[in-house]
Amino acid sequence: MKSTNVAATAAALTAALVLTGCTGADTSGSTPSSSPADPTTSESGTQASAEHNDADITFARGMIPHHQQAIEMSKLADDRAASPELRRLAAKIEQAQAPEITTLRGFLAAWNAPESGVDHESGGHESGDHESDDHGGMSGMMTGDQMRQLEQSSGAAFDRSFLDMMIAHHEGAVRMAKKQLANGINPEAGELARNIIDTQRAEITEMRGLLD
């Protein structure tokens, strides 16, 4: 009889442990999931919200070659510019825009959008066509002829050409960034657009001062 009571007690304890384990589980019925706005980390290490639209993609695709051309122009100042102030400004432009290219490429990678659909030389625009934002929003891009003219100049002539061209180039970037703020939905792209506006407006003011 005694052994029967011991066995019954052991069975009761086992049942209690099983019940305790069940009640310790998540009974809410919910499972972790990724919403469209969850951040996604791209291969470049840049984190961007997955939420985006065509305007966000157009902004990133258009701004990459736009920045690349600004960097190409800035590199020319190293051995062609007469003004040390201009050389310092050109170096600052290069240092600011190179990391932004990495960020923009990170956006496209996070959105599974290829880096394509743009003209990497002139964007289909002539130098005077700064208000047009078609063909990827490549406003303010220099033509191949303008870039060759800049490459072949030096000294004071280079300084003036560089400043005239880079002011127009920056004004185009500001318009592209404003278009992103008006039409895009990705928060990180919007933050970058605001930074581009603030930075390049300040540089435009500085360049106009060097022209005086």
Rank of each mutant, 00 (worst) to 15 (best):
M1C: 08
K2H: 09
K2W: 09
N5I: 11
A7E: 15
T9H: 08
T9W: 11
A11H: 06
A11N: 09
A11F: 07
L13C: 04
L13S: 06
A16K: 00
V18E: 00
C22P: 01
G24D: 02
D26I: 02
T31N: 01
T31Y: 10
S35A: 13
E43G: 14
E43D: 13
G45V: 02
G45F: 01
T46K: 00
S49V: 00
N53V: 14
D56I: 14
D56T: 15
A60G: 14
A60L: 12
R61N: 15
R61V: 14
G62N: 13
M63D: 14
Q68G: 07
E72W: 06
E72Y: 06
L76T: 13
A77R: 10
D78W: 02
D79Y: 13
P84M: 15
P84K: 14
L86Q: 10
R87C: 08
R87T: 14
A91N: 12
A91S: 12
K92H: 13
A96H: 13
A98S: 15
A98E: 12
P99R: 05
I101K: 06
T102A: 05
T103W: 04
G106N: 01
F107Q: 06
A109W: 07
E115P: 04
V118Y: 03
D119V: 02
D119E: 02
H120R: 04
E121S: 04
E121D: 03
S122T: 05
S122F: 00
S122C: 05
G124W: 06
G124M: 01
H125V: 07
D129L: 04
E131Y: 03
S132D: 12
S132L: 08
D133C: 12
D133E: 11
G137I: 05
G137R: 03
T143P: 01
D145H: 07
Q146R: 09
M147V: 12
R148M: 13
E151M: 09
Q152R: 07
S154T: 11
G155M: 09
A157I: 03
R160G: 03
F162S: 01
F162K: 01
L163Y: 03
M166G: 02
I167D: 09
I167K: 11
I167A: 11
A168D: 13
G172A: 06
G172M: 02
A173Q: 08
V174C: 00
M176D: 01
K178P: 00
K178Y: 03
A182T: 07
I185Q: 11
N186G: 10
N186Q: 12
P187V: 07
A189K: 01
L192C: 10
N195F: 04
I197P: 09
I197S: 12
Q200L: 10
A202C: 05
E203V: 02
I204L: 10
T205I: 04
T205S: 05
M207R: 03
G209C: 00
G209T: 08
L210S: 00
L211N: 01
